[in-house]
C-alpha cells in the first residue's frame, strides 16, 4: 500500500500548499514544547479533590498509614464484599514484600478469565478527575486492570498529581516514553446502552477500590 501513502500525502500536501515533512520546524517545535491548554482550577488540596471525584464515579477507598496495612485493608474489603480470599496480584516491587495470610490463594501473574479479584499499583493519581494512571509492564499486567470483577489499586498519596498534564510530565521525567498501554481509569466499568440507565460492571471491573497509602513513597 506504499503507493496509497504517496497518493494520500500528495493530495494533502497539494491542498495545504507545502511539501510533507516529519521534521517540519512548526511540528518539531510543537511536539517538543508540550504547551498546556487552559488548566481547570479548584480550591481543594489534590488529595481531597481526588477522593471527592473518586466517590463521584462510584469508586471506594481505604486509607493506609504504610505498606504494613495492605493485608488488613484487602482483608477488610474482601470481608465487606463477601469475596473469596483468592487474589491475582501484580508482580510490583511495592507488593513484593507483602506477606499474605496462610490459606489465601495469591498468584503473581497476568489475569485470567476466572480471576475474581485483582490487585495492582497505580503509577499516579489525577486529582482533577479522581483517576488512576497505570502503565503496562512486567510489574503491571494490563489484563489485571480489566478482567477481574473487583479491581483493588494501591496509590501512594504523594503520587497524586493535580491534572492529566502533570501526569504526562511525571511520565516523561521518570520513564522517558510511553509503555504499550497507558490506562487512565476513572471508577468501575459502566454502560448506559440499555435505556440510558447507568449500570456498573459492563465488561471491566464491577467495583474499584483504592488503597490510599500515606507516608513516603518507597
Amino acid at each position: 500500500m506504499t503507493d496509497r501513502r504517496t497518493v494520500i500525502l500528495a493530495r494533502i500536501s497539494q491542498a495545504l500548499g507545502h511539501a510533507a515533512a516529519a521534521d517540519a520546524p512548526a511540528v518539531l517545535q510543537r511536539v517538543n514544547d508540550h504547551a498546556r491548554g487552559p488548566q481547570p482550577q479548584w480550591a481543594e488540596a489534590p488529595r481531597e479533590r481526588f477522593l471527592a471525584k473518586l466517590a463521584k464515579v462510584a469508586g471506594t477507598h481505604a486509607e493506609l498509614a504504610s505498606e504494613a496495612e495492605i493485608v488488613g485493608a484487602v482483608a477488610d474489603y474482601l470481608a465487606a464484599q463477601t469475596l473469596p480470599q483468592r487474589l491475582c496480584v501484580a508482580p510490583h516491587p511495592l507488593l513484593a514484600d507483602v506477606v499474605w495470610p496462610q490459606g489465601w490463594q495469591v498468584a503473581h501473574r497476568r489475569a485470567q478469565g476466572d480471576d475474581r479479584i485483582g490487585l495492582a499499583v497505580a503509577f499516579c493519581g489525577i486529582a482533577e478527575t479522581g483517576s488512576l494512571m497505570l502503565l503496562s509492564g512486567p510489574d503491571s499486567p494490563t489484563s489485571l486492570n480489566f478482567l477481574p470483577d473487583d479491581f483493588i489499586c494501591l496509590l501512594p498519596e504523594d503520587r497524586i498529581v493535580p491534572r492529566m498534564e502533570d501526569a504526562w510530565a511525571l511520565l516523561r521525567a521518570e520513564r522517558g516514553s510511553l509503555p504499550r498501554a497507558t490506562n487512565i481509569i476513572t471508577g468501575p466499568s459502566r454502560t448506559a446502552d440499555v435505556e440510558q440507565t447507568i449500570q456498573l460492571g459492563a465488561h471491566g471491573p464491577r467495583r474499584l477500590h483504592v488503597l490510599l497509602k500515606g507516608g513516603r513513597h518507597a
Binding site: V57, T129, S131, S177, L178, P179, R180, A181, T182, N183, I184, I185, T186, G187, P188, S189, R190, G204
Partner: peptide, 9 residues
C-alpha cells in the same frame, strides 16, 4: 472523563 481513557503505543 470516561471510565477508561487508554493510550496504546
Amino acid at each position: 472523563i470516561t471510565s477508561y481513557t487508554t493510550f496504546f503505543t
